[in-house]
Amino acid sequence: MSVLIHEPVAVVAVFKNGRVKPVVFRWKDKKISIESVSFMWQTTQGKEHFLHFTVIASQTLYELLFNISSMVWNLERVETNIGISTI
């Protein structure tokens, strides 16, 4: 099940060759080390650009959002269980 979080988080990321790769983030006073970035995509809202990352850490999927204009990282959602059951 996907749980919307939408909270700012502190992220350690590597900026290399024009790419961004989140490595570690802190959420609820817990340091979470990212094991792999499974996907990255970009969205815009008006002239603001966002980078979305789905990352895996300790068998959990997190979606991190980086606002390129304000340089703020957010934890958007956590996948606590695979898939979403509807109806």
Binding site: S36, S38, F39, T54, I56, L61, E79, I82, G83, I84, T86, I87
Partner: peptide
């Protein structure tokens, strides 16, 4: 496939994409 790329836990499993939560 994009959903399976985003979420590795969905890979190799039967996945159905619906337009939004609650769609049929």
């Amino acid at each position: 496939s994009v959903e399976q790329q985003k979420n590795p836990f969905l890979r190799g499993k039967p996945v159905g994409v619906i337009k939004a939560d609650g769609r049929t």
